[in-house]
């Protein structure tokens, strides 16, 4: 077997690929289309100024922005460590950081209460310093960080792992410190992966519902983010619920598309890092 099938031909696998793509894309797109068809732009505009919508929008932007920043700032060094070092308990640590992904969000919320609630394991100590998290905006951010961590650390770690080891070795032979190598070589090269991870974790934080309502509660203006407002509205006012959902979808779409199509060399100059 020396000849390879041409990649641009229409073989069985290509047909299968196209069929599966159409099917999957339609399956995922249809619920979004159904939501979008439900409201006219005029209806949207009319309800956009409602306090409940504006409060939720502002709160969602602030909390998910803060949560994403925290996840990226803390997650990046962790991902670097996981990608470049071997140490005892590494596998366990990796699994631990993935765990929030499998936990049903409401269960995660209860677990957060039992840990950081005012009667919780760590919460009692926090209370001694006058810090209470449940029923506060900071509590919302805590819930979002907990749920969003795996969506950043995984991709970031993978991104650092694909950085060519020879480049890092070269930097080391040139007597570059690890700090220098990290910021000037590894970070620029892994930037696309880090951005993708940031986008995923940001989207997860933006859409977070179960852990938030269980841990932080639901009060307009202080803890009622957009997903919570959608859920509450769903029970009494379908139009507002749909409007909020559409806003949420548009925000997530822009976020994911924007960070994914960030131009090469944006944020860090990759080409300079290569030379």
């Amino acid at each position: 077997m020396t000849a390879r099938a041409p990649r641009n031909g229409i073989g069985f696998v290509a047909v299968l690929g196209i069929a599966a793509t159409v099917l999957l894309a339609a399956f995922v797109a249809l619920p979004f289309v159904a939501l979008l068809l439900r409201v006219s732009p005029a209806q949207m505009a009319a309800r956009l100024g409602e306090p409940v919508v504006l409060d939720a929008l502002r709160l969602s932007l602030v909390t998910s922005g803060a949560a994403t920043a925290i996840v990226v700032l803390l997650g990046t060094p962790v991902a670097w460590l996981l990608a470049t070092r071997e140490f005892p308990g590494k596998r366990v640590l990796e699994v631990l950081l993935d765990l929030p992904m499998v936990l049903p969000p409401t269960v995660a919320g209860f677990a957060l209460l039992m840990a950081f609630g005012r009667m919780g394991l760590a919460g009692q100590a926090l209370g001694a310093f006058g810090v209470t998290l449940p029923f506060t905006t900071v509590g919302v951010i805590v819930a979002q960080v907990f749920m969003a961590v795996p969506f950043f650390v995984g991709p970031a770690r993978a991104g650092f792992s694909t950085v060519d080891g020879k480049l890092l070795d070269a930097a080391a032979t040139l007597r570059a410190s690890e700090t220098f190598t990290f910021f000037r070589v590894a970070l620029p090269l892994a930037a696309p992966a880090l951005l993708a991870g940031a986008a995923m974790s940001g989207a997860r934080a933006l859409g977070e519902f179960g852990a938030t309502i269980t841990f932080a509660g639901n009060l307009p203006g202080s803890t009622q983010t957009m997903p919570l407002a959608v859920y509450v509205a769903l029970q009494s006012d379908l139009d507002t619920a749909v409007l909020l959902s559409v806003l949420l979808i548009v925000m997530a779409f822009v976020l994911l598309l924007g960070l994914r199509s960030a131009p090469r060399g944006w944020l860090w100059n990759r080409d300079r890092a290569r030379t």
Binding site: F110, L113, M114, G117, R118, M119, P134, F135, I213, T214, A216, G217, N218, L219, T223, Y231, V232, Q235
Partner: peptide, 21 residues
Amino acid sequence: NVVSEEETVKAVVGKVQLGEA
């Protein structure tokens, strides 16, 4: 004094039961 408007009565029970409210 209301700090949270819960979506089910069981959620109210849960928060009081845990001593958070």
